[in-house]
């Protein structure tokens, strides 16, 4: 890996980290969801600074081509993230249903009270 490429990757990762931190401070992303992205950035950064570690690790696991390990890790990360998102969406939609029902019931209560006041 050339020093040029290492610097480009490092800059990109740092930009991403900065962006995530900005999103957290603006409260556009929950810290608990931001954590996994920050962890990812730091891991990429470590391997970028010490690329030999990466070769060593893929050899230990038994992957002949180090680039294949990147793909594998990336795919695993994507699948787990998507799964986490699916469960989140399900939970949010359940909560949403409850809220909608509560709004309908409260509206009815308000109507009843209004009717009582008028009569």
């Amino acid at each position: 890996m050339s020093i040029k490429l290492q610097i480009i990757v490092a800059v990109l990762v740092l930009l991403m980290l900065l962006y995530i931190i900005r999103m957290i401070s603006k409260k556009k992303i929950d810290i608990r969801y931001a954590l996994r992205w920050m962890a990812l950035c730091i891991i990429v950064l470590v391997f970028d600074i010490f690329p030999k570690m990466f070769n060593w690790l893929s050899k230990v696991i038994g992957i002949q081509l180090p680039s294949n390990m990147i793909f594998m890790v990336a795919i695993i990360l994507l699948i787990t993230t998507m799964f986490a998102l699916t469960t989140n969406v399900s939970r949010i939609s359940q909560k949403n249903t409850r809220l909608i029902q509560e709004v309908a019931l409260l509206r009815d209560e308000i109507d009843k009270i209004k009717e009582k006041e008028q009569s």
């Binding site: 949403n96 249903t97 909608i100 029902q101 709004v103 309908a104 019931l105 509206r107 009815d108």
Partner: peptide
């Protein structure tokens, strides 16, 4: 008439009726 502000589908609608019945 109970008015759901957002469409829930048959299950959510009927359940609203059940909650109404309980309360």
């Amino acid at each position: 008439c109970l008015q759901l502000p957002i469409n829930l589908g048959i299950g959510g609608a009927v359940q609203t009726g059940y909650i109404y019945g309980v309360r």
